[in-house]
Design a protein around this nucleic acid. Sequence first.
DNA 1: GTAGTTGCAAACTTTTTGCCGCGCA
DNA 2: TGCGCGGCAAAAAGTTTGCAACTAC
Lengths: 147, 147
Amino acid sequence: MKDVTCPDSPLADLCRQRGLKLTGQRRTIAFVLSDSDDHPDVEELYRRAVAVDPRISIATVYRTVRLFEENGILQRRDFGGGRARYEVADGEHSDHYHLIDASTGKVIEFENAELNALLDSIVREKGYDLVTTRLSIVGRRKAGGED
Amino acid sequence: MKDVTCPDSPLADLCRQRGLKLTGQRRTIAFVLSDSDDHPDVEELYRRAVAVDPRISIATVYRTVRLFEENGILQRRDFGGGRARYEVADGEHSDHYHLIDASTGKVIEFENAELNALLDSIVREKGYDLVTTRLSIVGRRKAGGED
DNA sequence: GTAGTTGCAAACTTTTTGCCGCGCA
DNA sequence: TGCGCGGCAAAAAGTTTGCAACTAC
């Protein structure tokens, strides 16, 4: 009995496109991920997935997250703090970066074309083609800034 | 009996300057670190330290590395691969970045003034003061490059 | 029908911690 | 001499895996 606990999602489609079996658990995890615009770690992902369908174990979340990463569906990020965090890989080219608030740990995403170009030229000059950039800037809110 | 297993080192001095007790183990670890220009993880550090003085436990390496980090002597880096890696913090301002060879995993350090300036202005524009930058670029050696 | 997937619990890996004797300042 | 440090081994925290049952295709 195919007992659908949650609807399809863009990530579920991607999953099919890559020829991966779309099990109930994967559909759920894909749904949760499609619905997230932050950078959850595995435990947080597990919490959200269980809220949708309690028949998911954390081992499955780990396995799925790894599978999705290997298939270019997810990207692993490391913001310090010991646990891996994940976000949807937005195709080859909307490179974005992370500004981390030093006091709150909050992650702010941003893009910057000039930065893209500069990084590209630096790497090229050293004889490499740019594959991925991982940039996190830790910053402290300037005195006089709004709360 | 003060039984010196290894000489003082720039990091040992720094250690004293911060008012930290300079024990034999710390001197050894400081020595090993001063002597390293790569990015060892704790286990590698432990291996190198034990080679100098076998009376060191891995717990001490963990404790020392954390202590040094808290005192701005070391910086923790995350190149993926699960374990934290460390390098000597070169004072406030010789910010440098890492280019990681996608095929070999080799880490190439570089500096770039233009990049420093651009990052600084980006962060400032968002109302923050730059504290630290963590930038790793993964690149693949261009076809036709030397080996 | 079958190969691939899941849940569970146990194993593993990396890092932290409690306790007590010891060494640095 | 006193307070903090280090060794040891056990515990925590995060992640992976073996196995038998199950499910998508």
